[in-house]
Amino acid sequence: MLSEQMQREALSKCIVWFYDGNVRTFYSLDKTHKRAKPNQALGIRRLEKMLMETFKGQWETAIVYENEPRGNELARFKRGARV
């Protein structure tokens, strides 16, 4: 679980609907090190890796949004594949 500050600073977030009925939100880690320039693409890639490897076979849908109120959708995953 990320700290609240890190959640606020994240550039993207991922909402995951699991097969067991759970819905969880994950926030991206966009820096390679503490003082690095944030890289949104890196954060999205890491979220994708989490979905495809850590939670492989456990989720039905996952959507990555910009971490802003009314943020745009960035990527959508369905049953283990990016669509």
């Binding site: 949104q40 693409a41 890639r45 960035l74 990527a75 990016r82």
Partner: peptide, 11 residues
């Protein structure tokens, strides 16, 4: 390959 806008921009 399906890419989002930030990823596209990075590439």
């Amino acid at each position: 390959l399906v890419l989002s806008e930030p990823e596209d921009r990075e590439i």
